[in-house]
Design a protein around this nucleic acid. Sequence first.
DNA 1: ATTATTTACATAGCACGCTATTTAATTGGA
DNA 2: TCCAATTAAATAGCGTGCTATGTAAATAAT
Lengths: 143, 143
Amino acid sequence: MDQFQHNSAGYLANHMARLFAAGLARRIQPMGLAPAQFMVLLELWHSDGRTQADLTAALDVEQATMANTLKRMERDGLIRRLPSEEDRRARLIHLTDRARALEAEAKAAAGAQNALALAGLDEAERATFTALMRRVIGNMQRG
Amino acid sequence: MDQFQHNSAGYLANHMARLFAAGLARRIQPMGLAPAQFMVLLELWHSDGRTQADLTAALDVEQATMANTLKRMERDGLIRRLPSEEDRRARLIHLTDRARALEAEAKAAAGAQNALALAGLDEAERATFTALMRRVIGNMQRG
DNA sequence: ATTATTTACATAGCACGCTATTTAATTGGA
DNA sequence: TCCAATTAAATAGCGTGCTATGTAAATAAT
């Protein structure tokens, strides 16, 4: 008995993700950023001017989730939307100057949170940890 | 570069937790349950008649989060609240017959989701995985 | 060419996490 | 004893995830 609860992989995954999100939120809040916004910015810092559908696929969230996140980011002056030339249904997402200026500081904040989370794990343990998470993710994506 | 994104522990943790939650939600939805409700039920199946504060501590969520989850569970006929004898501020949370009847089926559903997630991992890998998650959780709790 | 399907995106509504605030009861100190 | 501090719980407001549904544009099929 008590095979679930604080022992199950699912509970631990949820708990760990909440702590990651809370820690990141605390670190990037001074920049006016929220965690999901940061994930979108990572994609756009890497390559700007993409479609909503592209961002949705990159972050593996539902289309409606991305639509709402982008609405908040537009409200907060992090992105602008320009009509696509090729497809009049689509609007390409572009970073604002403000969003571009946040890159280094925000990435440093995320790096600090990851460093805290993984403190005391050597390189082999970190590799094992991420490899195991990837396998578990793969299992659930195929299931 | 690209040290974050699909490679960071934080991203993987979030992704994994979302897949766990979605899988569990799909399995317990036919019983009229949602994931956070299931976590509360696990606590109450283990010992019934506890305070909101006790459940809050057991699941490591904020008091307001638990208050809202319990409100939905009362609405859905999963719990009843009876006044505490010792403390007139507190109301003890009790399972309904309906909630008691769901124990075996809901635990089986959660077990199936965990089995899917951990498929292909042997016992040593599973132990390593949960131990690493616990260490990472500990790091962030102390940080 | 017209119709049907698919695709891109928006919106509504809900679950669940958070912080901040309020109310009522209890406890502790002067 | 009375007042201050703490504690139990509720509520408001928001971010982020989901499903379901609607609308307009593009593509495919007849």
